[in-house]
């Protein structure tokens, strides 16, 4: 990368990851009838959106953003989402599973497994069907979890959004097989080859906005199953003897607030976050309560249509 290019702050490694992701995003725009980019508000989505804006400059990305709203996101996430959509000038579609609302599904009352199944997985499938999207970008990375390590960059989904780990197409070179029939679709993961380190290094180098929840701050929390759960609104019922206390905490990953554990931290800036991450001894998914349900639980969820 030449030093006059304006990308002087990117290492050769990050520059290569960036170029690879941009090529993947362009490929989808060129090959599919109606693509959409899933936007889940977290740091990975933020990086993916940033890459999409770069891929089509001086134009705008030729697809909308989609957020599947479980109604249990942190308030700061929703405010950030609306601010970002406005800032980048892209269409933002929001879908919430109406059946789940009617059934009163919530992570508190229904448990994490059912809540995830109905509000995230089913909600996502409804949204993709409702607008007829044939390709959907997701921000998943191969380093996140074991069954993701074998995921294709272009992941084929059969009718009903089914994922068959044994039926995935071999993916050689960058010659992606983009051919699908009616009713079939492709999930595309432009950040497949990025690690958590790469994402934060890139956020820092490119000055990408992220939700303030990633930065340490005094927040009202209660301790549950060894992790700090934030009391984001009055919907979180407190158990007998529980009193929210103010702690200096931050989040490594963001999801529905009763399912996202915070860590105690003083890291209030990007360099401090990166330093803390490099010294950390636990993986980012540790704070995610949905993965620990059982062995190979991610593979199971993916078969059902989870991202």
């Amino acid at each position: 990368m030449s030093s006059q290019s304006g990308k002087a702050t990117l290492t050769p490694h990050l520059a290569r990851l960036e170029a690879e992701s941009i090529a993947i995003i362009r490929e989808v725009a060129a090959s599919f009838r109606k693509p959409v980019m899933l936007y889940s508000i977290g740091k990975d989505s933020g990086v993916m959106l940033h890459l999409a804006l770069k891929a089509f400059a001086p134009g705008k990305p030729p697809f909308p953003l989609l957020h599947v709203d479980t109604t249990w996101k942190f308030r700061e996430m929703i405010a950030f989402r609306d601010m970002m959509a406005k800032k980048v000038g892209m269409e933002l579609l929001v879908h919430t599973n109406p059946d789940g609302i009617e059934r009163g599904i919530s992570p508190v009352a229904s448990g994490s497994a059912l809540h995830t199944q109905v509000m995230k997985t089913e909600g996502l499938k409804q949204a993709l069907d409702k607008w007829g999207f044939d390709a959907a970008f997701g921000g998943a990375r191969r380093d996140e979890e074991k069954s993701r390590a074998k995921e294709r960059i272009f992941s084929f989904r059969g009718p009903g959004h089914s994922w068959d780990p044994r039926g995935q197409r071999p993916e050689l070179w960058n010659l992606f097989n983009t051919r699908i029939r009616d009713g079939e679709s492709i999930r595309v993961f432009p950040l497949s080859n990025w690690t958590e380190y790469d994402v934060w290094d890139y956020v820092l180098a490119e000055d990408i906005p992220v939700v303030p929840l990633y930065f340490a701050k005094q927040r009202p929390v209660v301790k549950r199953s060894g992790t700090w759960i934030m009391v984001d609104d009055e919907r979180l019922p407190l158990e007998p003897g529980e009193t929210p206390e103010m702690r200096m905490v931050r989040f490594r990953t963001l999801g529905c607030y009763p399912l996202s554990g915070a860590v105690e931290s003083t890291a209030a800036t990007l360099p401090e976050i990166i330093a803390e991450m490099r010294a950390a001894r636990t993986s980012e998914r540790q704070g995610r309560l949905i993965d620990t349900d059982e062995d190979a639980s991610m593979e199971k969820k993916k078969r059902e249509g989870y991202f």
Binding site: R142, R148, K150, D295
Partner: peptide, 19 residues
């Protein structure tokens, strides 16, 4: 070895990418 079938059989079937 990430996929359920692989763990049960003790072999690697698909390509896994590690970082």
């Amino acid at each position: 070895d990430g996929l359920e079938a692989e763990r049960q059989q003790g072999i690697t079937i698909d390509v896994a990418y590690r970082f």
